[in-house]
């Protein structure tokens, strides 16, 4: 599956130019949930609801409905490259 097949929406966040929201398609989320959460460094659980950590130098919050917020992203290209890796997407 390509990244496009796996993602429901991908949006730069209003006001925070280096922040992106990514929503995974439900089947992708069900399949990759454990892997995504397990890939985070310095992982912590927040309010028993979501996980926060670092992936390849980027801050990531992983929410239980398959939404991911990426903060301090150096560039959109970089985010796409790490998403490809995190989701095992084919090019």
């Amino acid at each position: 599956m390509t990244l496009q097949d796996m993602i429901e929406y991908f949006e730069k966040q209003c006001g925070d130019e280096d922040s992106y929201a990514v929503a995974l398609k439900p089947d992708v989320w069900r399949r990759l949930r454990k892997k995504i959460v397990g890939s985070l460094e310095n992982r912590r659980d927040v309010a028993n609801t979501f996980h926060k950590g670092i992936y390849k130098g980027v801050e990531v919050s992983v929410f239980p409905n398959g939404r991911l917020i990426f903060k301090n992203v150096p560039s959109e290209d970089y985010l796409i490259s790490i998403l490809n890796e995190l989701l095992d997407a084919s090019s």
């Binding site: 966040q13 209003c14 925070d16 309010a47 919050s61 929410f63 409905n65």
Partner: peptide, 29 residues
């Protein structure tokens, strides 16, 4: 410790719909 978007996404996961961003008031922010 959290961005406004993280707060909104957290609340959304609990069914709460709030807005996050500059609300089209960049100078005010």
């Amino acid at each position: 410790g959290f961005s406004a978007h993280e707060v909104a996404a957290y609340l959304d996961s609990l069914g709460i719909a709030v807005r996050s961003g500059h609300h089209c008031t960049g100078p005010l922010h």
